[in-house]
């Protein structure tokens, strides 16, 4: 497959270079919100939406910054952009789905510090993607984050029912599980060369 093609960029961000399990981005919500499957699903949706909005906007902002030779402001403008798109999602949710807004609670504003979102913006800039490629990349990354967090939530729901030794409580076992998940995702490396 041509590594520049839209479908390959999507697939690469979704499975081969999964943002959570291969690149270690967005681990805080991955550990923090993966206790129940439905909250995990909502979190994944909100994150994917913020990713899509901020990635398209950061493409535009990068054009402006490059035109005026202001690349050193890139990081600051990206982070401000992400903070405002999170605010946007918050307002939309509050208006159209107050139940979901309450379910996500504190984790909604925390999407701002989700490194996966800044990661998408930074990677698409450093790889020089054009607009369509950026869109495909951000959709793939969002889907990959969702897949990882929902898989993890499913596993952790099973764990609650099993009899475990005391020392595996808190995050220790979750990390082990994530390691095994990550090991299985390495199998996807056979799909194509990693970028």
């Amino acid at each position: 497959m041509n590594p520049e093609s839209l479908s390959f960029i999507f697939l690469s961000a979704f499975l081969i270079n999964n943002f959570v399990l291969a690149l270690f981005l967005g681990l805080c919500p991955f550990v923090g919100v993966s206790a129940k499957r439905d909250t995990a699903f909502n979190m994944a949706l909100a994150t994917a939406f913020v990713m899509f909005v901020s990635s398209s906007c950061s493409y535009a902002i990068n054009l402006v910054l490059t035109a005026f030779d202001l690349e050193f402001l890139r990081l600051i403008s990206y982070i401000a952009l992400i903070a405002s798109s999170v605010q946007l999602v918050e307002m939309i949710l509050k208006k159209f789905s107050p139940a979901l807004f309450r379910a996500l609670g504190i984790f909604l504003p925390l999407i701002t510090t989700n490194c996966a979102i800044l990661g998408v913006a930074l990677f698409q800039t450093s790889r020089g993607y054009d607009f369509l490629q950026s869109v495909s990349f951000s959709l793939g990354a969002g889907a990959g984050f969702g897949l990882a967090i929902i898989l993890m939530a499913g596993l952790r729901e099973k764990l609650e029912l099993s009899n475990l030794p005391n020392i595996t409580q808190a995050a220790a076992l979750s990390m082990m599980l994530a390691g095994i998940l990550s090991l299985t995702f390495m199998g996807f490396a056979g799909l194509g060369t990693t970028v």
Binding site: L21, A22, L23, F24, N166, I167, T168, Q169, A170, A171, A172, L173, S174, M175, M176, A178, G179, I180, S182, L183, M186
Partner: peptide, 30 residues
């Protein structure tokens, strides 16, 4: 590779939990 990171961190946490439990009888993370 990536899986190693998760597994080593998980192992350190297990070890620390174990030592802490032996020492105080309760979990540090609790």
């Amino acid at each position: 590779l990536p899986p190693g990171g998760f597994i080593v961190l998980g192992s350190w946490l297990l070890l620390i939990n174990y030592i802490e439990q032996r020492k105080t009888g309760k979990l540090i993370a609790e």
